[in-house]
C-alpha cells in the first residue's frame, strides 16, 4: 500500500472501465459479454476506486498522517472530497464521455436528490436491504430509452461512513452500524 501503487490502481481502474463500456456499446455485435457482466465490471471499478480513495487518500491523510481533512465543503476549506462526493464527481465526468450512468443512492440520503427517484430504485433498495449479497437487476424503459439497470448494495465499510451519517444534522437516519446496508450503487447501461 505505498504511494507508487496509486497511479497503477487508477490506470487499471480506468482500463477496466473502458473495457466495460466497449463491451456494453458493442451490444449484439460483440456477443458473449452479457450486460449483467458489463455492469459487474463497471461496478468493480467504481467500488475499487472508491475503496482505494477512502483508504489510501482520505484515511491515510486525514486519520494517520493528519495533514488534511475530508469535508463536504472541500473547495472552500481546501480539504479532500468525501468518498461519496468523489464517486458522484466521477459519475458526472463519466457521463460526458460514455453512454452509461452510475449513481450512489439511499432511502436515507442526506440530500433528497440522492433518494430513490424511480420504481426500480425503490424496489432495488428494498431488495438489497433484505439480501446484502445480492444484486437487483431489471430492464427498464426510462425517458423513452431502454436501460439494463443493476443496483448493488452499498455497505458501511468504515466508521467514518457511520459517524458522518449518524451525526449529520439533516440525516434522516442516525442509527447506522458498521456493515449495515446504507444504500446502493445503480449502474444503468443503455441497450440501444
Amino acid at each position: 500500500m505505498n504511494d507508487r501503487a496509486m497511479p497503477w490502481r487508477w490506470t487499471c481502474g480506468v482500463v477496466a472501465l473502458l473495457c466495460g463500456v466497449a463491451c456494453a456499446r458493442g451490444g449484439g455485435a460483440n456477443a458473449g459479454v452479457p450486460p449483467e457482466k458489463v455492469a459487474d465490471f463497471v461496478h468493480a471499478v467504481i467500488a475499487a476506486d472508491r475503496a482505494t480513495y477512502a483508504e489510501e487518500v482520505v484515511h491515510r491523510l486525514q486519520d494517520v498522517e493528519k495533514v488534511v481533512r475530508a469535508t463536504e465543503q472541500f473547495r472552500e476549506e481546501k480539504g479532500l472530497p468525501l468518498p461519496s462526493q468523489m464517486l458522484r464527481m466521477g459519475a458526472q465526468r463519466a457521463a460526458k464521455s460514455g453512454g452509461f450512468r452510475y449513481a450512489l443512492i439511499s432511502a436515507w440520503a442526506i440530500n433528497k436528490a440522492n433518494m430513490p427517484r424511480t420504481d426500480f430504485e425503490t424496489r432495488g433498495l428494498a431488495a438489497v436491504a433484505q439480501a446484502p449479497d445480492a444484486v437487483y437487476r431489471s430492464t427498464e424503459e426510462v425517458g423513452g430509452k431502454r436501460y439494463f439497470m443493476s443496483l448493488y448494495p452499498d455497505v458501511a465499510v468504515s466508521e467514518a461512513c457511520v459517524s458522518c451519517h449518524n451525526g449529520h444534522a439533516e440525516s434522516p437516519r442516525k442509527d447506522f452500524k458498521l456493515n449495515d446496508v446504507m444504500g446502493g450503487v445503480v449502474v444503468a447501461l443503455p441497450l440501444e
Binding site: 458526472q92 465526468r93 457521463a95 450512468r101 443512492i105 427517484r117 424511480t118 426510462v142 425517458g143 444503468a188
Partner: peptide, 20 residues
C-alpha cells in the same frame, strides 16, 4: 464553476421524470 446543479447531473435516466 463549480456548479451546484451541473447539466451532467441531470443527464441520467433516474432524472427522466424531473427532466420531463
Amino acid at each position: 464553476a463549480p456548479d451546484t446543479h451541473p447539466p451532467a447531473l441531470f443527464d441520467d435516466p433516474r432524472w427522466a421524470p424531473t427532466i420531463a
